[in-house]
Amino acid sequence: MIKMQVIGNLGKDCVVNTVNGKNVINFTIAHTEKFKDSQGNSQERTTWVDCAYWTDRTSLSPYLTRGKQVFVEGTPEVRSFTRQDGTSGASLSLRVREVQLLGGKEGATPAVPGSYAQSQAPATGRNTGGGVPSDIGEAVDDLPF
């Protein structure tokens, strides 16, 4: 099995579809890599990944909006196609098994912490003490170590 992990920002709001009675959440992630070329000039290269998340947990879809930063993991697929001008092209797609919300647009507050995996229930985050401290500076007594 080949596994691919991507951290990036959503290019547009997700779309929920039903195919043969099964729900699929489709979205696109942009991952931008910064590097220096052979002359030492700073360069950027953006890779777009089309994602298909086959799941009944469509309640995640309102949080998959343009600009949100996410982590996705799944199986990659490369699709070849012919453009209208006759040239060939390829696209990278990912059959998603896990989605984790990482952040969002500047000034936005995170709506749902944790991850959603197809084979398990949504994670509740790292704080296993049963709640979130009301003050950031408040000490948490229930440390897992």
Rank of each mutant, 00 (worst) to 15 (best):
M1W: 00
T46I: 07
L143E: 12
I25V: 12
Q43L: 02
N17Y: 08
W54I: 03
V49H: 04
L10R: 04
N41E: 12
T75C: 03
S119V: 03
T58Q: 14
A139F: 08
I29C: 03
K36Y: 05
A30W: 01
S91H: 02
Q118F: 09
V16W: 09
G137T: 12
G104E: 10
A111N: 10
S42I: 13
D142M: 08
K68I: 01
A121V: 05
L64V: 06
P133H: 04
G67Q: 08
S38E: 09
Q39W: 00
T65G: 02
E73A: 07
Q39I: 01
G137Q: 13
T28R: 13
H31N: 14
A139W: 10
C14Y: 02
V19E: 11
R45E: 11
T58R: 11
L143N: 13
T28N: 15
R57T: 11
K105F: 02
F71N: 12
C51K: 07
K3H: 08
D142W: 03
V112M: 15
P76F: 13
F81D: 05
V99L: 14
K105G: 06
F145C: 05
L94C: 01
I7T: 13
T32W: 05
P122A: 11
D13E: 07
R45I: 09
L10A: 05
G137E: 12
V49G: 07
R79Y: 04
D85H: 01
